[in-house]
């Protein structure tokens, strides 16, 4: 099991903040025992601790349910200055966890953040917006969803760190440890239903443009593109 691409960016941002300011980074995920592989990767990349919220007794079919479990874990960890997540997951691409998490935790939320730094008693975050960047200041803890940028590409962990990560403990919390009941994370809590998921069929064809010389070929190509309303 691997970490989702944007979550890797989030992890990289967290580790860079730790290297810059000094901090404790905890990697948190929701999943089955297999997700421990992903947490080991996070530890190898520089996280100090790892927590798996075991969904064996839960039915997190939709982001709000999954987020409720994650929020409970964040509260249990306590005393956090910053919560980072990828802007969307690697499988369903819902892109809701960040916002819902902020809602659950009662914290401000800043989406699409490529980078941030400490500022006053809070944070100064850059947010990607159409055609530019929006810089926002937040006082106190907040939740940010991280988007990819050239300066937050996930590092390749050193093998020594990978081997050390294999020896670090991973905490596992279930609904009991988190004080969650059936109504919070059970089957009944799901209200969203995915009707269909499919990979759109992509057909590629290769066609050679005929013509006696370059100009004729160019004209023929332009006609074809015109016919298909490309130009």
């Amino acid at each position: 099991m691997v970490i989702g691409p944007f979550d890797l960016n989030a992890l990289e941002v967290a580790v860079r903040l730790k290297e810059r300011y000094g901090a404790q980074v905890t990697a948190l995920t929701l999943g089955s025992g297999k997700a421990k592989d992903a947490l080991r990767r996070a530890l190898a990349m520089g996280a100090d601790a790892a927590v798996l919220v075991d969904d064996g007794q839960m039915a997190p079919k939709e982001p709000s349910v999954a987020t409720r479990a994650l929020a409970a874990a964040v509260r249990k960890l306590g005393g956090l200055d910053l919560v980072l997540c990828g802007r969307q997951s690697g499988e369903w691409d819902f892109g809701q966890v960040g916002a819902l998490l902020a809602e659950e935790l009662g914290m401000p939320f800043v989406p699409f953040v490529p980078r941030l730094e400490a500022s006053g008693d809070g944070w100064r975050l850059e947010r990607e917006v159409e055609g530019g960047l929006l810089v926002v200041d937040v006082s106190g803890p907040c939740v940010a969803s991280i988007t990819n940028a050239t300066d937050n590409q996930p590092r390749l962990p050193k093998v020594k760190d990978i081997m050390m990560a294999n020896r670090k403990p991973i905490q596992v919390w279930g609904p009991v440890e988190l004080g969650l009941g059936e109504e919070d994370v059970g089957e009944a809590a799901n209200r969203l239903e995915v009707l269909e998921l499919f990979i759109p069929e992509v057909k590629s064809e290769c066609e050679f443009v005929e013509g006696d010389d370059g100009a004729a070929k160019g004209a023929a190509l332009a006609r074809k593109l015109w016919d298909r309303k490309v130009i």
Partner: peptide, 21 residues
């Protein structure tokens, strides 16, 4: 260089990540 320093060409890192993932 690779295992202790993680210092190797970005393109080669991509290949390594591909094998990993």
């Amino acid at each position: 260089q690779v295992m202790e320093e993680s210092a190797f060409p970005e393109t080669a890192q991509e290949a390594v990540r591909g094998i990993e993932d």
